[in-house]
Design a protein around this nucleic acid. Structure first.
Lengths: 214, 214
DNA sequence: TCTCTTGTTGAACGATTGTTCAACACCGGG
DNA sequence: CCCGGTGTTGAACAATCGTTCAACAAGAGA
């Protein structure tokens, strides 16, 4: 394989690392591959090459490719939600402003990303077959909706008029955000991120302003 | 006497069919495979086996596996949209009532179907790698949104007050319907179809009633 | 009945996949 | 300095993929 040492070939052929270090390096390499190539093209060899190691290391440290991919997905899901939450937390306004921050974050390039979408597609597909992946989905998606529901509940607490129930408002906004994300990733020319934000904001206004029967 | 050594079953080894018949049979077999096994496991051999023919027939009639899958996508998408449109056409009310019929149809068991969802996941996944599948998506999704946009335009024509532009209203409703469909298929316990209908209806009311800046 | 068209077969091929494992080499402790 | 354990290598392997194509045979027309 490649060695990043002197060209005169007297350096070590590889450097030994601890199991934890190597596992982390392999996971990062897998993520880079998945993002760049998509999951279906992220073969053992592509990931090993990206990490600068040989193919055997992956099965040595993770037991199977599936275990590595599952670990990578968990990492991505955790990272994405925490990134959105940090942008919400950074907002110093009230719940209504924090909800807008959530929407803005949902239409930021970090989320509106075709490669991320491809990873998510693979995640959804795997969910039907792997109970472990399915559990990760349920856990992460529950947390996602919970954040929205709390924000709506706080807004409702502030307002006087009766509004849509926080649960229904959160389900609606979550669906709208996911649907727009889906359609944008499949065909980015359909609408702009700014238009998506405007649509989501309109939903929020509807949910909190109108006296609702939901 | 022309009977050979085999005791029975000396009938024809296969039956010849017209190109159209065989293409249709292969397409149906491909759909059954995709729904049951998923795309990644629906190999040429699995589809051929499902159709009861040999592997060579697929490339003979479709040129490539990609073309067959694209045709299957088109078939499913056509069927789904025409089913929805027929229910809309069966509604004898005005555009507003027809829009409600569209929403009702979108939450009917025909659409809210996990196997259909798995097929759709497969098509979305292939869309990233296959220009042919991507073209089919663009065409079918455009038609889908066009139906919604026309209904919103007719409603706007009827109403006096300014409302959201038909294009934005259609994009929003399309996103909401797709997002809710996605989330329901991934986790049906989250909300009921009736709640989904109520959310979509709420969006329509927002789009046509409020004087909008969109 | 014979012929000819053509739908159909299925073995073969090359590419690629995830996995294995004996050999190798780095590096800390003797 | 050398030695042993262990992190690492990479060729080999079996399975599977989509595609090809020469050979076969079904069935209609002569």
């Amino acid at each position: 394989m490649k060695t990043d040492s002197t060209p005169c070939g007297t350096g070590p052929k590889y450097s030994r690392k601890t199991a934890d270090e190597r596992r982390e390096a392999l996971l990062q390499a897998a993520l880079r591959c998945i993002v760049r190539l998509g999951v279906e093209k992220s073969s053992i060899r592509a990931i090993a090459d990206e990490a600068g190691v040989s193919v055997g290391l992956i099965n040595h440290h993770y037991g199977s490719k599936e275990a590595l991919v599952a670990a990578a997905y968990r990492h991505v899901a955790d990272d994405l939600l925490s990134q959105i939450e940090s942008r919400v937390a950074a907002c110093d306004g009230g719940p209504r402003e924090r909800l807008s921050a959530f929407i803005d974050a949902s239409f930021s390039p970090v989320v509106l990303n075709e490669t991320l979408f491809r990873a998510w597609l693979a995640f959804w597909t795997l969910q039907a077959q792997s109970p472990e992946v399915s559990a990760v989905h349920k856990e992460r998606y529950g947390a996602y909706r919970q954040v929205l529901e709390k924000l709506f509940a706080q807004i409702k607490g502030d307002a006087e008029a009766g509004a849509m129930s926080p649960r229904m408002a959160a389900i609606g906004l979550s669906g709208l955000l996911d649907g727009l994300w889906l359609e944008w990733c499949l065909e980015p020319e359909t609408f702009t991120p700014a238009e998506g934000i405007a649509l989501a904001e309109r939903w929020v206004e509807t949910a909190i302003d109108d006296p609702g029967s939901l």
